[in-house]
């Protein structure tokens, strides 16, 4: 298990219950974490968990001048993907009439989503808006919802936020990388002047009571 886990981490993968269940469960043990951490340490990396411990990934052990270029690349990727991913999450929430943001491990049914964007004009418009978010979403025939949705799903899969559970039935699952994305969102909310947050003040939080 060590070998495949270490290789996946070095290749930049996020290891979670959806993408590599066995490796994820193995990494949950302290012994495995120490073993992998020691190995990664020799290569200038360390094992890191997402805030809710839903995925493992490799980060730099030390950040020096040599790593600055790589950090810029990561940031450029985040800048490029933050808007389409957020738009996709909004589409999933609105079309599914859910009052909660997707969580790692949640299932996504392609056929259901397609029928919703096809039957509802608003969701159709939301899907078309992906076309303005980058050339990776461009489709030759913009009139077909199927082609557009397929492009979006493929892109989310490529960025590591979705994984196909059953290709035949076109069922997907949100991965643990979504926890990383939410970490980025939390950081931006805390550090950027995002003032249009009417939703943040919608209702007062009830008393936590004895729970906390």
């Amino acid at each position: 298990m060590f070998e495949q886990t270490a290789i996946r981490l070095l290749e930049g993968a996020f290891i979670c219950e959806s993408t590599a269940p066995e490796a994820f469960r193995w990494l949950n043990s302290e012994h495995a974490q120490a073993e992998v951490g020691e190995y990664l340490g020799k290569l200038g990396r360390k094992l890191t968990m997402t805030p809710n411990r839903l995925a493992y990934y490799a980060t730099w052990a030390r950040v020096g001048k040599g790593e600055q270029t790589e950090i810029k690349k990561v940031f450029a990727h985040i800048k490029q993907t933050i808007r389409p991913v957020m738009h996709f999450l909004s589409l999933c929430m609105e079309s599914g009439r859910q009052d909660s943001a997707p969580s790692p491990g949640d299932l996504l049914d392609y056929a259901t989503l397609l029928s919703q964007v096809t039957s509802n004009q608003h969701f159709g418009e939301m899907l078309r808006a992906f076309g303005t978010m980058g050339k990776e979403f461009a489709v030759s025939d913009a009139s077909t919802m199927n082609g557009m949705l397929n492009k979006v799903i493929v892109q989310m899969e490529r960025w590591g936020y979705l994984i196909a559970v059953n290709r035949e039935h076109e069922t997907y699952r949100f991965t643990g990388k979504l926890d990383y994305y939410y970490q980025v969102i939390d950081f931006l909310l805390e550090n950027e002047p995002i003032t249009d947050s009417a939703a943040l003040n919608q209702e007062p939080e009830p008393d936590q009571g004895r729970l906390l």
Binding site: A101, Y182, D196, S197
Partner: peptide, 23 residues
């Protein structure tokens, strides 16, 4: 969910918004 909605709203209202150079 509240946080996601807040950011989604922000992005929708500010099409040119980009995060600061945190890198």
């Amino acid at each position: 969910t509240r946080r996601v909605r807040a950011v989604a709203l922000h992005l929708a209202r500010n099409p040119d918004w980009e995060p600061k150079a945190w890198d």
